[in-house]
Structures are given as structure tokens and as C-alpha cells.
């Protein structure tokens, strides 16, 4: 890694466009809500900046902490399941015959080009009490089982929604994985299992970490999946935030909740980047 001073022209050329877009069309707009999160509502549509911390303090009410904790563990389980299913898929695509790769890659992504709501309806049709899965199970004398409207259904739904966020980064790192490392490991007497855990997995770690970030974080903020597939206590923090911006019409509180979510993740990501920059070599 070079210092930016080594080649300032290249640095600024690469640095400017994305930063410009992010500042103008993301950070500045976000400024309004940041400002709002320290404001009081003074009428139906207006807020007044008072520097209050009340909105943030309100987020530490037990009910919101319970919901946040629930969102975290549901997202964590969904992310883990996503990794377990996406890894073989990405691996399979990368080791498939070259001519099949584009089609396989597309086939993995294609379901996600269908509108989320329509996909969720389809998922309900498969899993509901009189759905297709129970129909098939019925043929072998099992069920019917109540599979929807519980936390498990939300987790399965989230896996189904965020699968491409895991598959694609994994694909990007596993593809053109330097196979000589794997051969070396096998030649030196490592078993396939050892090779996988000692060589393949560490080499694809950047993709795994990226996939985890890209799945876990959006899971935290999801609201449609818990609303449609969850039972009576499916509420997640994404639903609470959505409610503040919509039915409750409380943008300051909604902003405060969103910013809390962002501070925590921002902190975690910055910490990771900081640690990575200090440890040499493995820089993810």
C-alpha cells in the first residue's frame, strides 16, 4: 500500500467522484435528520432544534432495548445460515465448468430480481399450513406443520432475502482463488478437510467478512420480512424505525434510533478497518 503522496494525481482522480457523491447525496441530506434527532416536535410538521438528548435517551427504554436485542440475535442467526448456504453455492459456481459460470451466477441472482413482496407472498404459499411443503410432507404421512408466523420463519425469510449479498462477495473472492495454494496443501499431505479449513477458508476470509457485513447490517434494519412472516411478536427495530417515520409521525425519534444504529455499526466497522490497518498482511 502506497501513501497517497506517492501518486497524488491518481489518488485524487480515484478519490474525488465517490466522495463527492457520498457527501452531496448522502451526508448532506442526512444532516437534516441528524439535526432532527436533537430537535423537539413543535407541530405536526415542524421540529425545532433544541439540542435535546431526549430522543436518544428514549431509545434506552426497556421496550426498545428488548426489540434491539431480538433484532440482533435474529440477524446473527440469519447471517450464519446465509453463510452456510451461500458458501457451497459460491464455491460450486467457481469450480463449475467455465461455460456454465455466467448462467449459474445469473440463476443465483435471478430470484432476487423479483419484487420482494411478490417473493415473500410466494414464500408464504410454500410454507403456510396448507402450503406446498406441507402438501409434499403429507404424501409421506407427515404434518401438516405450522411453519409460518414465528421467529424461525423470519430467519428463513431473511436468509432468502439477503442470500445474494452473501453469494456475490464470496464468488468475487473464491473465483480465481490461487489454486496452487490448495495443490501445495494437498501435496504436502493435508487432507481435503484440513486444506479447506487451513487454506481455502483463510484465503476467502475477505469475502466472508464482506458477506457478513452486507447481510447482518441490512437484516438489522429489515421491516417487511418480520411484518409478513413473523408472528404476533415479530417486531424488529426496523419496524419501530419505520413506524416513527410513518404512523407515529415522530421523525426526531426515528432519526435518533437510526443514528444509534449507525453509530454502533460505524464504530464496529471503523474499529475493524483500524485493526486491519495495524495488523499487516491480512487486510480485509
Amino acid at each position: 500500500m502506497d501513501s497517497w503522496k506517492v501518486n497524488p494525481r491518481v489518488f485524487w482522480t480515484l478519490f474525488t467522484p465517490g466522495t463527492f457523491w457520498l457527501v452531496l447525496f448522502f451526508l448532506i441530506p442526512l444532516g437534516w435528520l441528524f439535526h432532527d434527532s436533537f430537535s423537539d416536535k413543535i407541530s405536526i410538521t415542524e421540529t425545532q432544534f433544541t439540542g435535546t438528548l431526549a430522543n436518544y435517551i428514549r431509545a434506552f427504554d426497556a421496550v426498545y432495548l428488548t426489540i434491539i436485542w431480538k433484532s440482533v440475535w435474529i440477524s446473527a442467526v440469519a447471517t450464519a445460515l446465509c453463510l452456510l448456504t451461500a458458501y457451497p453455492i459460491a464455491f460450486g459456481i467457481c469450480f463449475a465448468p467455465a461455460k456454465w459460470k455466467p448462467l449459474l451466477l445469473l440463476l443465483v441472482i435471478l430470484p432476487f430480481w423479483i419484487n420482494l413482496l411478490i417473493r415473500t407472498y410466494a414464500l408464504i404459499a410454500v410454507f403456510r399450513t396448507q402450503g406446498y411443503l406441507n402438501l409434499v410432507l403429507g404424501w409421506v404421512g407427515l404434518g401438516p406443520y405450522e411453519m409460518l408466523y414465528n421467529d424461525g420463519a423470519v430467519i428463513v425469510g431473511l436468509v432468502y432475502v439477503y442470500m445474494p449479498f452473501m453469494v456475490l462477495p464470496l464468488y468475487a473472492t473464491i473465483e480465481r482463488l490461487d489454486r496452487s495454494f490448495l495443490e501445495a496443501s494437498l501435496d504436502l499431505g493435508g487432507s481435503q478437510v484440513q486444506t479447506f479449513f487451513k487454506v481455502t477458508l483463510p484465503l476467502t476470509m475477505p469475502g466472508i467478512v464482506t458477506g457478513i457485513i452486507l447481510v447482518f447490517i441490512p437484516c438489522l434494519g429489515s421491516f417487511l420480512t418480520p411484518a409478513m412472516l413473523g408472528g404476533a411478536n415479530a417486531i424488529m427495530i426496523g419496524n419501530v424505525i419505520e413506524d416513527q417515520f410513518k404512523a407515529a409521525n415522530d421523525w426526531p425519534f426515528g432519526s435518533a434510533l437510526s443514528f444509534l444504529l449507525m453509530y454502533v455499526t460505524f464504530g464496529a466497522l471503523a474499529l475493524r478497518a483500524f485493526l486491519a490497518s495495524r495488523s499487516k498482511g491480512v487486510d480485509v
Binding site: D2, G18, I217, K246, G254, M262, A273
Partner: peptide, 23 residues
């Protein structure tokens, strides 16, 4: 490149992933 406040820059860059859509 290495540049000042890089970790912070990376964190800010990932904010659009973190932010709830409605926000």
C-alpha cells in the same frame, strides 16, 4: 493508498449500507 483518517473514511463509506432505508 494510505491516507489520513482512512479508517473513518471507510466507516463513512459503509454508512449507506447501515442506514435504515426509510431514514
Amino acid at each position: 493508498f494510505r491516507f489520513p483518517f482512512k479508517a473513518g473514511y471507510e466507516g463513512v463509506m459503509s454508512l449507506p449500507i447501515v442506514i435504515p432505508e426509510i431514514c
